[in-house]
């Protein structure tokens, strides 16, 4: 079945951050359950464009290939998504593949998402434990809190929520929905709540939650179905209370 069927892929290439961008088109042999990663691997094995020109394999990030490591986010047919779960049969051809546009480009499809990890530092996205030595059990947590917190802790830092956010661009340093959602997660935990006010203060800093303009694209683009807009609302509620009423004591 499908003998001789081809998959046409167009990839935006850029040899480095300051190099010019160009498009290359490839024609690949179709196979069942093919995804975009397989396309990129096929190109690496035979890096020749559709019109027969030799080229280099495409640089891209990938690791787990089951949508849980967050590496392979890119723009596929103009939309931010994970390449591993982008199945060729569900995509219009030619499949256009581009790097994410909101992060500094490294090469081809690889971008540098360090900004997200730095933001996590800024908001103290951790539970401040005393140490790893034996201090007994953790606090009890109700199943209700667990069921709210677990989806939030599924965030894979892929960056899709930043990519689709109209508020994230060269004019702003908005941290994005993922980070705000982490603030909610850690403030929800009994131990994490001890540093709640520090996290809230940080998320009201430059590029903080105030830059959200409620376009709500993030929640549509999140591959892990995290209720990001609920997180933003919840953090917003705590934030203004602290900022505006905090001094009242």
């Amino acid at each position: 079945m499908g003998d001789g069927k081809q998959v046409i892929v167009k990839v935006k290439r850029q040899a480095g951050p300051k190099q010019p961008a160009r498009w290359e088109e490839f024609s690949l042999k179709w196979r069942p359950s093919m995804n975009v990663i397989i396309c990129l691997r096929d190109i690496a094995e035979s890096p020749v464009t559709r019109d027969g020109k030799k080229t280099t394999p495409i640089t891209y990030d990938s690791n787990c290939l089951e949508e849980i490591c967050g590496s392979c986010a890119m723009l596929i047919n103009g939309k931010a998504r994970m390449a591993c779960s982008a199945l060729v049969d569900q995509l219009d051809q030619p499949i256009r593949i581009e790097p994410m546009s909101k992060f500094p480009l490294v090469r081809d499809l690889a971008v540098d998402r360090q900004f997200m990890f730095e933001s996590l530092k800024r908001v103290k996205a951790w539970i401040p434990i005393d140490g790893t030595y034996d201090l007994g059990e953790g606090p009890r947590v109700s199943p209700e809190i667990q069921e709210q917190g677990y989806p939030l802790s599924n965030c894979i830092s892929c960056g899709n929520c930043l990519e689709v956010c109209p508020q994230v661009n060269e004019h702003s340093q908005f941290v994005g929905a993922a980070i705000i959602s982490q603030v909610r997660l850690f403030n929800m935990h009994p131990t994490g709540a001890m540093n709640k006010s520090e996290r809230l203060a940080a998320i009201m800093g430059p590029g903080g939650i105030q830059d959200c303009a409620n376009a709500q694209n993030c929640v549509h683009a999140c591959p892990k179905n995290i209720p990001l807009t609920e997180s933003i609302a919840a953090v917003n509620r705590d934030a203004w209370k602290q900022a505006l009423l905090g001094w009242l004591g």
Partner: peptide, 21 residues
């Protein structure tokens, strides 16, 4: 068991029983 306690203290969202354990 101590490792589980440690992870629990680090805030891992383990599934819970109705008693919160």
């Amino acid at each position: 068991p101590g490792i589980i306690d440690l992870l629990d203290r680090m805030g891992v969202m383990f599934n819970r029983t109705p008693e919160g354990l």
